[in-house]
Design a protein around this nucleic acid. Structure first.
Lengths: 242, 242
DNA sequence: TAGGTGTTTCTTGGTCCAACAAATAAAGAT
DNA sequence: ATCTTTATTTGTTGGACCAAGAAACACCTA
């Protein structure tokens, strides 16, 4: 209901839908109306062709989309079965290490994080407890023992996740959970193990110190600097897509 | 988590991988080795067929996957261009179904919206253009002609969506898109058609006026009040424990 | 006869080919 | 400069074949 097939146009139900998109929607409706649950079988491709009056290639392309979305699992000679790997797929989207995070994505996400983390300073100080400070320091300390970038970014992410958890806002936590893959890649951008162990570590510690000292301005300044520091890796890059 | 374990494509060798998976990998490599950036064009389907020695259907199915992953945007006659909508796709996958609107949920979501909308006041005034004000007024005017609550909340949502669109931040827009079902339900909570036509309308207009007058304090005060006003409907309501 | 075994046939997804339609960018004509 | 034609490219269709698993079947043995 909320998502359409592949077109990202804002219009819903306009006439510009391709046949593949139509079939995608029809299959989703079929799943919904037939109350198919995880593990149930979908009709064969050829049956779907007849049912939706579409060619087999069209049905196959629709299946590819549903498969990419993690909604069906199709195996040769077995057929298509309903699954729910959406979360897994969401994380796999960013396993495409071949492509760099675009500057726009980087900028948008970091601005958003800055908005949430820096903008909630007052709330942080209202709710802050000693336990929070201890946890943050403990997490940050793990940066000293990292072995690779993945491990480092996981710790970096855990630090910020623990920080926003102070807000006790489930909506924010959910959003951060979904954005995790993007955030991880952003954190790794241009960094080395050494940078994580030295610069990132001390930036985090500065934030924790400011929290402990109840120094609102220092907290905001240091956190914002920490979030925006990655911009230097985009210094000369220029891209302008209409 | 990165490369190892997707369902069907474990081996990077020759056996076991379908031709479509191979082409997907080849296109990924092409993007990487050619250093293609967002906005650049991919070769035509037929070129890719020749280049990878695959049939056109295979290339098309591979393209569907990349499109579903938000890595390419293919338009008829134009061809495929590199994009980076992976985060949008991730949010689409997430698409948590409308949960029960508890007082806690209401509080969390409205706090979050307040954080984003009220907290971005400076950015709003930086980027604001006359066109934005006109659109906001135009959208708000539609509240006068509503027929039911669904229609009213859609317009209310569209108003706030248009507001945050001024920020030109894709991450924020994606988050709002995902939260739409929850936001709609929150907007309807305790309201009547009359309230939408009178109170909500004038609250919106007050926000627009404050924007037009470049009155930052009035903007923040009115917007925050508007977002928090629904709390009165939870005043006496009891809700079961978490 | 009952039960297990090996063979055959059928089904199904995976791939390829050859068309045609629609849309649009580019070249050509006026 | 504007309109028209052409050519290119994606979208879609239908058909064909293959390989591998499933299912049905025949067969043999105890």
């Amino acid at each position: 209901m909320s998502t359409e097939g592949s077109s990202e146009s804002g219009k819903t139900g306009s006439a510009g839908e391709s046949a593949v998109d139509v079939v995608v929607q029809q299959i989703r409706n079929l799943i919904a109306t037939s109350k198919l649950k995880v593990g149930d079988h979908l009709p064969t491709e050829r049956d779907l062709c007849a049912q939706f009056n579409a060619s087999r290639n069209t049905v196959r392309e629709a299946m590819r989309i549903l498969k990419a979305y993690g909604l069906v699992d199709v195996r040769p000679k077995i057929g298509a079965t309903i699954t729910d790997n959406r979360m897994t797929r969401a994380f796999e989207l960013f396993s495409f290490n071949t492509m760099e995070i675009s500057r726009k994505t980087f900028s948008d996400v970091q601005d958003f994080r800055s908005l949430v983390e820096v903008g909630s300073a007052d709330l942080f100080f209202d709710r802050l407890r000693q336990e929070d400070l201890d946890d943050l320091s403990e997490i940050n300390a793990k940066l000293a023992e990292i072995h690779d970038l993945n491990e480092a970014s996981e710790i970096d992410y855990a630090f910020h996740m623990r920080l926003v958890s102070i807000l006790d806002n489930h909506a924010v936590l959910d959003v951060y959970a979904v954005m995790k893959p993007v955030i991880l890649r952003i954190m790794q951008k241009g960094k080395t193990r050494r940078i994580f162990k030295t610069e990132t570590f001390s930036e985090h510690q500065g934030v924790v110190d400011a929290l402990a000292a109840r120094d609102r301005l220092a907290f905001q300044y240091r956190l914002r600097s920490h979030l925006m520091i990655g911009f230097r890796f985009f210094s000369e890059e220029m891209e302008e897509s209409a």
